[in-house]
């Protein structure tokens, strides 16, 4: 996993609330047996619309997706973060992000950033004014807008550590082998 310490990027704003994982990656693309190449199908149905935000040339190369409340609700498919990362995103920003998606995202080097309503509104306004380069600093857990406004966001401590160092969580659990064996011996 690629470490993530700071991220400076323009944003892509998808202001819809309750964007579900079926939109992020429709089920017909889940018949794959690998995790590669899913970026091509990211928001596949919405991208059919030429005016969809990801089809606009100015959003090309943006690494931060900003979406409405309750982002990535629905299914547990990890294909959703795989597709976002494969497309080029390193962070998603919303006022609320679904639990399973959050868990999946951090394991793939994709940072879920939950901001307050005020910060969210300011990002959306900055984006519509075309002045939307934001800085996300995972060490200080802050997101800063071009006008200097800064919002803090929570990140689970261990996930933060793993993202900063680019560490795999499985190695941590594998080191608990003795404790797991001990636990099993009492069952």
């Amino acid at each position: 996993m690629k470490p993530l310490v700071t991220l400076t990027s323009r944003v892509v704003v998808l202001p819809n609330d309750n964007v579900d994982t079926d939109q992020i990656i429709p089920a017909r693309f889940l018949t794959t047996t690998t995790r590669e190449g899913l970026g091509e199908h990211l928001f596949a149905d919405w991208r059919k619309d030429p005016s969809f935000v990801l089809n606009r040339p100015e959003t090309k190369g943006a690494q931060i997706l900003v979406a409405g409340n309750n982002f990535a609700c629905g299914s547990s498919r990890e294909h959703a973060p795989w597709a976002l990362v494969d497309f080029g995103f390193r962070a998603v920003v919303s006022t609320s992000i679904a639990d399973i998606f959050t868990n999946n995202a951090v394991k793939n080097g994709l940072l879920p950033v939950e901001v307050d309503e005020e910060t969210y509104t300011k990002i959306v306004a900055a984006a519509s004014a075309g002045n939307d380069e934001v800085v996300i600093d995972l060490k200080t857990q802050t997101l800063t807008l071009p006008d200097g406004h800064s919002g803090r966001f929570p990140v689970e401590g261990f996930a933060r550590h793993c993202l900063l160092e680019g560490i795999d969580q499985l190695d941590f659990i594998l080191r608990e082998d003795d404790a797991i064996a001990e636990f099993e011996s009492h069952r």
Partner: peptide, 13 residues
């Protein structure tokens, strides 16, 4: 429900 990375965690540990 869990994602596929965690499916792997449970398989291994």
């Amino acid at each position: 429900g869990i994602g596929t990375t965690e499916v792997g965690h449970v398989m291994a540990t």
